[in-house]
Design a protein around this nucleic acid. Structure first.
Lengths: 189, 189
DNA sequence: GTCTATATCAGGATAGAC
DNA sequence: GTCTATCCTGATATAGAC
């Protein structure tokens, strides 16, 4: 792997684990096996490198989600697959965790990929819920946009509960509860 | 206010805004208007002070929640009040945000108050859902523990979505979606 | 109890040699 | 492109005077 490549991948790892504030250029260099000068040759500084890393993580997350959400199956099934897909629960969401980083939120440039990714996911989920309503899987009275926000929030909040308790159980419980609510109201299962 | 008191309150503010990793002793001292020596006289160091601050925030959050959840009204009404209570959405949850702090998660002592608070909230909500089931407000098939996790996760995740977009709208949408699901399945409204 | 001095290491970056 | 030297500030304390 090229040096810039290793720097980006290392930054992605460290941002996931320690956040933006908790990630130093020195730590990135050591993790990437690159020298000081090397890093500043390829990137203008920490924000520049972080931006590249965040963008790539955002793209990857989008691709993964799209893979699950565009699979064959009913709307309800796809949402279930999305919610139950394998996750590294205790590590948290590499995109969602950035919203707790003051420096990321303070920078429009760094926040943009985070915002866009979560926003895209919300719209994608809303479209699927809408589709489910048309197919009679969900009650017509449901507000697809609101349900999409609930689904995404349950996932993001599930990470919080899991990390607090040091166990993925709370994440799973939250998902289970949501799915029971989603399928209980179904006119037809 | 006494100096230790000002130090604790300042630490609470800064932890909420910048997290543990992003909060330095110097910043705390300046915010509190206290000198270096003063801080180290009253506390052994940053972790000690942070522990005091986190414990107090946890207690406060618990008291606030208990105030809402033990108010008169049906189970469903109390959950609604809890979800819709006024919040500083864009600031996020002062307890939940700590779960994204690597140093907090790495320390059993610092994580304990966070874990206990969220756990207590989950049990408290579960008891109310259970109560609602007995009163016929919720379907008997619901798993109270799971629903409680879903409720709490929706709130915690709502903060994430709101901060990402820079607007409380997503938080409100998530809550709205959850409430529509919770009340849709009710045998009796 | 509070202040000032001092210490050490890390954060974040620039400059110039190779 | 990469390395080393150097810079300045901040993070996190300890020591001892007042």
């Amino acid at each position: 792997m090229s040096t810039p490549e290793r720097l980006i991948e290392s930054t992605r790892e460290l941002l996931w684990e320690r956040g933006y504030v908790g990630t130093s250029p020195k730590a990135i260099q050591q993790h990437a096996g690159a020298g000081q000068g090397s890093m500043y040759h390829h990137f203008t500084g920490k924000p520049d490198l972080a931006l590249a890393a965040i963008r790539r993580t955002a793209e990857e997350m989008r691709a993964t989600a799209e893979g699950v959400l565009s699979a064959p199956g009913s709307a309800c099934e796809r949402i279930q697959t999305y919610l139950r897909r394998e996750r590294d629960v205790l590590r948290g969401c590499p995109i969602g965790r950035l919203t707790m980083d003051p420096d990321v939120i303070a920078s429009d440039e760094l926040r943009a990929p985070v915002d866009e990714t979560l926003d895209w996911l919300r719209e994608r989920l809303a479209a699927i819920v809408e589709e489910g309503k048309k197919q009679g899987e969900f009650a017509p009275s449901l507000d697809a946009e609101a349900i999409a926000a609930t689904i995404l929030a349950t996932v993001q909040g599930g990470y919080v509960l899991a990390r607090a308790s040091g166990s993925p159980a709370a994440f799973d419980a939250g998902v289970r509860g949501l799915l029971s609510l989603l399928t209980a109201g179904s006119p037809a299962t």
